[in-house]
Nucleic acid binder design. Sequence first.
DNA 1: GTCATTTTGACAGCACACTGTCAAACAACG
DNA 2: CGTTGTTTGACAGTGTGCTGTCAAAATGAC
Lengths: 157, 157
Amino acid sequence: MSEVEPRTEAGDVLTEVIMRTFRLYGGFLEAAEVMTKPVGLTAAWWQVLGAVLRQPLPVSGIAREMSLTRQSVQRIADLLVAKGLAEYLPNPAHKRAKLFRPTEAGYAAVSSLAQAQHAFTNRISAQVDPDDLRTTLKVMERLVEALDADEWPTGDA
Amino acid sequence: MSEVEPRTEAGDVLTEVIMRTFRLYGGFLEAAEVMTKPVGLTAAWWQVLGAVLRQPLPVSGIAREMSLTRQSVQRIADLLVAKGLAEYLPNPAHKRAKLFRPTEAGYAAVSSLAQAQHAFTNRISAQVDPDDLRTTLKVMERLVEALDADEWPTGDA
DNA sequence: GTCATTTTGACAGCACACTGTCAAACAACG
DNA sequence: CGTTGTTTGACAGTGTGCTGTCAAAATGAC
């Protein structure tokens, strides 16, 4: 019936790349957990707090900026407030959408994390060829574009 | 007090790579969901079923092979059996650790997924330079190694 | 063979992200 | 104005992964 899709060489390489992507995701996430633990945060909290270092934003705005759902961010934001790492400010422009921003303690936590993060990226990046690393970044950016643009063929439409 | 960790250029590139890793992870995962949906699977189910195509394994064996916890795999395995896509066989070598393997329906589902997967990787990989893609794979493998080998400096131990 | 250790499945609970639904607040239009 | 559509937060539920605990089965040391 349907034609068999032949495997291309580049396709096979990409398959390997995808598997490494999953492993690296896990590894980087673990590294983030290790870094955040001493500070009393989690990777997810770090991410949310980091989105609001420069200017306060409503929860829905953070979600938009990070391509997450409002609900996910809301949950974490409430937890951060409960821990005293962030606070809600009344929003003159919108009665429901309170503005979210770190407290002093929140800023302090993120600052110390920046230290750990630089140590980490310096340490790991020193183990690969700089030019190859740049090439990798270029390819990954291209792949992100390709994924975003990819129209999912609806099977047999 | 403590010295400020200087940011290296390679470190900054790696930071960008990490962010792309997270985006690609999300993109590839979404692609997997899109591919599996028509077949009535999920990405996680696909992964578990795929681990046992060649030979039956106990749940704990699958978990070891995929670096997941027994519990996660167990949950999915039970669901696959409930859906008729896999089955448990008595294990002569171990009374509790039943052998897990796909049913005919399970094999059929995975086969059709292989088709979709090849179409996908062919399509996406065609949009990047083949040599650069190989370089990327090489770098990612190196990064995986570096992460595995990285000793987490225990703060101030 | 006996006993301590490890492996295994079962069960319970937590973190994170998702979807869906609802009502309040806002924005745009006639 | 009022009506309609969108945005927002609150609430409920799902899927996936994790940790932790327990008892049965298997393994290894003696």
